[in-house]
């Protein structure tokens, strides 16, 4: 009985706390995405003319996000049934956008980030057998600063 009560309270705390954190994070992501919109980020090698380039440098951004207890349980149940794991979708989406944003903030003052790459890794906890629940996203690219504006 006590186990069940503990489980249910963890579930409830996880659900509400997770929702609040997620909501806040999305709000901040949207705000910063809007602010950094003027800096184009592309996956291709769109190199400007050589004589226009003032300087170029590697920029990186990374972010580790964990999901709440409720979503972890939800994902575990989904793993049994199969199908789309909606519980993890926001986790990965948030981590990616956050990592890209951090990379963009590192490139402040430059005019374009080319050859952007995004890597995802999962961090397995050692305590449980399939320690699911957190992802690390790493974004990197080459920032280019021009002599005159594009």
């Amino acid at each position: 009985m006590l186990d069940l009560a503990l489980f249910l309270s963890l579930l409830t705390i996880g659900y509400f706390a997770g929702r609040v954190t997620e909501h806040r994070h999305y709000k901040s992501i949207l705000l910063r995405e809007k602010a950094s919109l003027r800096l184009p980020t592309v996956t291709s090698n769109m190199l400007p003319e050589v004589d226009q380039i003032a300087k170029s440098f590697l920029v990186t951004g990374s972010c580790v996000i964990s999901i709440d207890y409720f979503k972890r349980i939800l994902a575990g149940l989904r793993n049994i049934m199969g199908g789309r794991m909606t519980a993890y979708e926001t986790l990965i989406d948030r981590a990616r956008r956050e990592a890209i944003l951090r990379m963009k903030y590192e490139a402040l003052g430059s005019h374009i980030i080319v050859n952007t790459r995004v890597e995802t890794a999962s961090i397995f906890s050692s305590t449980s057998q399939n320690g699911i629940g957190s992802v690390e996203v790493f974004a990197y690219g080459t920032a280019i600063k021009l002599k005159k504006t594009l």
């Binding site: 199969g82 794991m85 979708e89 990965i92 990616r96 952007t116």
Partner: peptide, 16 residues
């Protein structure tokens, strides 16, 4: 014309 980065992601599992 270019619009910057676009991304699509999904995560799926098979049943037991």
């Amino acid at each position: 014309e270019h619009f910057g980065l676009v991304q699509g992601a999904t995560i799926r599992a098979k049943h037991i």
